[in-house]
Amino acid sequence: MKRSSYRIQQLAQAFAHTIPIVDETATHRRWRPGIGPFEEERQLEQLREEVENRGLIEVTINYEEPYPDSSRRVDLLLDDGGNQLPIEAKLIRFRRDNGNIDPNMYKSVFSPFPERSSSSMLTDCQKLAESGFDFPCGVLGLYYESNEEAYEELRADRIAEKFTLDVGYWYDIPIEPICVESFSGLRHPHHQQGAVIAWELTEP
């Protein structure tokens, strides 16, 4: 495995290990207890802090660093002895706090159409490719589901496969799924288990 691929996998494994730990005390004022309902930014903040406190990764994790060629900021920037590896991260959470399907979540993951106010996980790949950062780059998906998810198409391995195909279809950017790191035993009734899904983008 390439060093960059190993670093992306190491981060995915650290997050998957940490999610059940953070879940034990994560309480939202509006939603039911557990990390699943939390907003993306807050989840990443809690997970990064826990990973660092436990020393679960061998490199420095920088946060919200600016892109070299724009005012945009990348979610995570791994610094491996001066070698920088930018990573964008997104929640993949198709069910709401009440268990109903969130009609906006599919768009936030798979939409190829950039919008001024937001971006999807798919358009994040295009942003990374045009960011001015050197390749390779990484993408992380924090996926949550219930223990008895009715839709087989929503499984983490199926999402990993579909996303890989979609990036190639829309942008012709070389992408490889690196890992699907599972976690379980969460408190929320509809965000009970899941996986951290990781991909690596390489130079076209």
Score class of each variant (00 low, 15 high):
Met1Glu: 08
Lys2Val: 09
Arg3Phe: 10
Arg3Asn: 13
Ser5Arg: 14
Gln10Ala: 13
Gln13Leu: 12
Ala14Arg: 03
Ala16Pro: 03
His17Cys: 12
Thr18Ser: 11
Asp23Asn: 08
Ala26Pro: 07
His28Met: 07
Arg32Phe: 07
Arg32Asp: 12
Gly34Arg: 01
Ile35Asn: 10
Pro37Ile: 01
Phe38Ile: 05
Glu45Arg: 15
Glu50Asp: 06
Gly55Thr: 01
Gly55Arg: 05
Val59Gly: 11
Thr60Asp: 14
Ile61Gln: 07
Glu64Asp: 11
Glu65Ile: 13
Tyr67Met: 07
Tyr67Lys: 02
Pro68Leu: 06
Pro68Asp: 03
Asp69Lys: 15
Asp69Leu: 15
Arg72Met: 02
Arg72Tyr: 03
Leu76Gly: 03
Leu78Thr: 00
Asp80Ala: 12
Gly82Trp: 02
Asn83Tyr: 06
Leu85Phe: 00
Ile87Tyr: 00
Glu88Val: 08
Glu88Ala: 03
Ala89Trp: 00
Lys90Pro: 01
Ile92Gln: 06
Arg95Asn: 09
Arg96Thr: 12
Asp102Ser: 10
Met105Cys: 10
Ser108Ala: 14
Phe110Ile: 04
Pro112Asp: 02
Phe113Ser: 15
Glu115Gln: 14
Ser118Pro: 04
Ser120Ile: 03
Leu122Asp: 13
Asp124Leu: 02
Cys125Pro: 04
Ala129Met: 12
Gly132Phe: 01
Asp134Lys: 15
Pro136Ala: 06
Cys137Asn: 11
Gly138Phe: 04
Val139Pro: 00
Gly141Glu: 00
Tyr143Gly: 10
Tyr143Thr: 13
Tyr144Glu: 11
Glu145Ala: 12
Asn147Ser: 06
Glu149Leu: 02
Ala156Phe: 00
Ala156Asp: 02
Ala160Asn: 03
Glu161Asp: 13
Phe163Tyr: 04
Thr164Glu: 11
Val167Gly: 03
Val167Gln: 01
Gly168Cys: 05
Trp170Ile: 05
Asp172Val: 07
Asp172Arg: 13
Pro174Ile: 09
Glu176Val: 09
Glu176Ala: 06
Cys179His: 10
Val180Met: 07
Phe183His: 04
Phe183Asp: 01
His190Trp: 09
His191Tyr: 08
Gln192Ile: 06
Ala195Tyr: 02
Glu203Pro: 08
Pro204Thr: 07
Pro204Ala: 09
